[in-house]
Amino acid sequence: MSNKPKVLLTGGRGMVGKNILEHATARDFDFLAPTSADLDLRDLAKTQDFFSKHAPDFVIHTAGLVGGIQANMARPVDFLVENVDIGRNVIMASRSAGVKKLLNLSSSCMYPRNAENPLREELILKGELEPTNEGYALAKIFALRLCEYLHKEDASLQYKTFIPCNLYGRFDKFDPKHSHLIPAIIHKVHLAKVNNEKTVEIWGDGDARREFMYSGDLADAILRAISNFEDVPTLMNVGLGIDHSINEYYEAVAKVVDWHGEFVHDLTRPVGMKQKLVSVERQKKWGWSAKTSLEEGISKAYDFYLKVSNEF
């Protein structure tokens, strides 16, 4: 029987989950990462039964319905209801099973659309949300507050939340129907290269700014956190503290892919918030920073894309 701490990882087949499981220090833990076929987290009774049966020492909650602007705008009900159900069920099943330590993974989309950048943790619920992903954001706020309320009622429940900035990397979703910005750019620019296309379209003027961190770096922060959970802030952004314009991300991908065409802008398309840069002051005090450069991260993501591009 293993003496390693037993960690139940939800979303273990997603991008963040897979990066956690392949991290060098993952071997220090006994991970249990059920698939959606093993466990439907939308079903409270089944979730409670699973948690009670396996009695984890720790829960890392990364599961959820995710997607880019197009998916969020097309399916706001699903992004709200499914993520509320999943967050509630995982968190409440953890309490029912006697789990004292839970790390809830949230999203920077929780911040108000007009909040001053960099986004500080105390700004949550201080303004109107970005309409293009409001349903998803509300679900994430619900899970955050539920963790806080449970700790308030019972201080032994260390239910903490990380708010990562935007992510990309290996195991990302590159299908245009589901992808976020960087994997979508990789797909578009790669197709332009193989099809000898001279132009690639950018939504909006490309001046909106975003902060994207390589997913392997988030995995590193999570594994460091669960190794010494008492020192982790109850609520903390995890990011780079620097951002780039959408145009700059396109240029970075074009350099990695080795495509030399021109970009054209469609000014009729939605672009979301003009800037979304998280404050990393709490993260700095915790003593952690991301190590992967933008070009290195895009190169790793592109290598992975080339291996899976025939799947869609």
Rank of each mutant, 00 (worst) to 15 (best):
M1G: 15
S2M: 06
N3I: 11
L8V: 07
L8H: 04
L9Q: 03
R13E: 14
R13P: 00
V16E: 11
L21G: 07
T25N: 13
F29S: 02
D30R: 02
L32M: 15
D40K: 01
D43R: 02
D43E: 10
A45D: 12
K46V: 03
Q48C: 07
H54F: 11
A55M: 06
P56L: 10
T62C: 15
A63C: 09
V66Q: 06
G68P: 06
M73N: 10
M73Q: 15
F79G: 01
E82K: 04
N83D: 11
V84C: 05
G87N: 03
G87R: 00
N89L: 03
A97P: 08
V99W: 07
K100G: 14
K101M: 01
K101I: 00
N104P: 03
N104V: 02
S107L: 08
S108L: 12
N114H: 13
N117K: 09
R120C: 07
E122W: 04
L125G: 10
K126V: 14
E130H: 12
P131C: 08
E134G: 04
E134W: 07
I141G: 08
F142H: 05
E148Y: 08
Y159V: 09
N166G: 13
L167E: 12
L167G: 13
F174G: 06
D175G: 06
P176G: 00
K177N: 13
I182A: 04
K188A: 15
E197F: 12
V200D: 09
E201D: 11
W203H: 12
W203F: 13
E211V: 12
S215Y: 04
S215N: 12
D220N: 15
A221P: 05
I222D: 00
S227W: 09
F229Y: 14
F229V: 02
E230Y: 02
V232A: 02
P233W: 04
T234G: 05
T234S: 10
T234A: 13
M236A: 00
M236R: 01
N237M: 00
L240W: 01
L240F: 02
I242E: 11
D243C: 06
H244G: 01
S245I: 02
V253G: 01
V256W: 05
V256R: 03
V256A: 07
V257M: 09
H260E: 09
H260C: 01
G261Y: 08
F263W: 05
V278Q: 10
V278A: 08
V278F: 09
S279Q: 02
E281L: 08
Q283M: 11
K284Q: 09
K285D: 04
W286L: 08
A290S: 14
K291P: 09
K291D: 15
S293K: 12
E295F: 14
S299Q: 13
A301G: 10
A301D: 13
Y302G: 11
D303V: 04
D303Q: 15
L306S: 01
K307I: 00
V308E: 07
S309H: 15
E311G: 02
